Amino acid sequence: MNNTYFTEEHNLFRKSLSDFLQKEVVPHIDKWEKTGTIERFIWEKFGEMGFFGINYPEKYGGLDLDIFYTVIFLEELQKINSGGFAAAMWAHAYLAMTHLNKEGSHEIKEKYLAPSITGEKIGCLCITEPFGGSDVAGMKSTAVKNGDHYILNGSKTFITNGVYSDYLVIAAKTSPEEGNKGMSIFVIDRDTPGIASTKLDKLGWRASDTGEISFTDVKIPVENLMGEEGKGFPYIMQHFALERLIMGINAHARAESAIEYTLQYMSDRTAFGRSIDKFQALRHRIADIASEAEMCKQFNYLTAQRLGNGEYVVKEATMSKLLSTKMADNAINECLQFLGGYGYMEDYPLARMLRDSRLGPIGGGTSEILREILAKMIIDKKEYKPAT
């Protein structure tokens, strides 16, 4: 283990989390992959173990630990070969809950963040729209203030935990005429009248519930506004750095998992009188993908350290997601090939891993959008600044 970033306490935490996942989660994964529903009990067990409170304040039941505990949480989730289960967990803990913690009032934190840490409540983050995609500024959903409520209308799509969550953290335009400067963030209870969800059928991430959600004259109490009205866009942009880095870390972790499995398979599989890990053509390809995975991992660790130190690493996090997800797709595709026909069989892990990995260059900002963001920063010298 890399002692530059991980202490003995980190390593003990990793062992504890790994043991927990093998005992409590792995036996149910195949069932959840088939049903598309993660049973409620596991959320509460995660809460009991403190895994949802890793980086949150002790005041609300969290552990207030450093960012490398989060890195471990993400890496270990990738090792159980269910991108959907992993996504449901980290989308709750690091998308929905991040906004609660950063922008929510004390009352909102007591009502939503504290039970999210215990696993009693599940959250989702609603930003992407059917006709918006990565164009957050082009959002159409509106929340018009009317007395002591906002009236929300619009729709969201591709929302992880979008069907079975208990509350929704949602972005909508409170002043549409002001463009991205007129956007705000709210938290809404799932059972609020006017909310309807439809479950989407996906290529991968089969265990997670990904939903399309419509909002028809939904009444949001004014106290459910998070942060300042009109500051929603910079809040979202500020947290995108964390989301992109999460997806970069996920990518290097699943690539490593695929490589580890494939190396074991190659040492056991024989052809022409010797194990296939003795053939130079395969050895050199493994050397390439392992090198690329290691380089992404080390860059991601350094970026995580800087983020944990309070630096605004939007450029580096964007690079992390862009390159790490591309690397993981290539590595897993190569690993599947090394298994030959068995790689294509559902009884072996690479088929699911390939499907799940393919979401990496799409979700949380497509690779095409990320390249344009980076081009603006590198060529046009555009600067992105944190919300004030």
Rank of each mutant, 00 (worst) to 15 (best):
P130N: 07
S116G: 05
Y60M: 05
P130V: 07
Q78V: 07
K145N: 00
L17E: 03
V25W: 02
V136Q: 08
K15W: 14
K23H: 13
I42Q: 03
A91Q: 15
G53C: 08
I54Q: 04
L63Y: 07
E8C: 14
K34W: 08
R40Q: 10
Q22D: 15
E110F: 05
K121V: 08
L65A: 15
K34Y: 09
Y94E: 06
K31R: 13
T98P: 11
K145H: 02
H92I: 01
Q78Y: 07
L113I: 05
E24V: 04
H99V: 12
M89I: 11
A91R: 13
A114I: 02
K109E: 07
E110C: 07
E120D: 10
F41R: 13
A91G: 13
E58V: 12
T37F: 15
K34T: 09
Q22I: 11
G61I: 05
L21S: 06
I117W: 01
M139F: 15
H106S: 15
K145Y: 05
L74M: 01
L17D: 01
S18G: 11
K145C: 00
K59L: 10
E24Q: 09
I122P: 02
N146Q: 12
I80S: 01
W43M: 10
A137F: 11
A143G: 00
K109T: 06
E8I: 14
A86W: 04
T142P: 06
K45T: 15
S141W: 06
N146F: 10
L65R: 11
L63G: 08
L100I: 04
I67F: 06
V71W: 00
M139G: 11
N101F: 13
Y60V: 06
K23L: 14
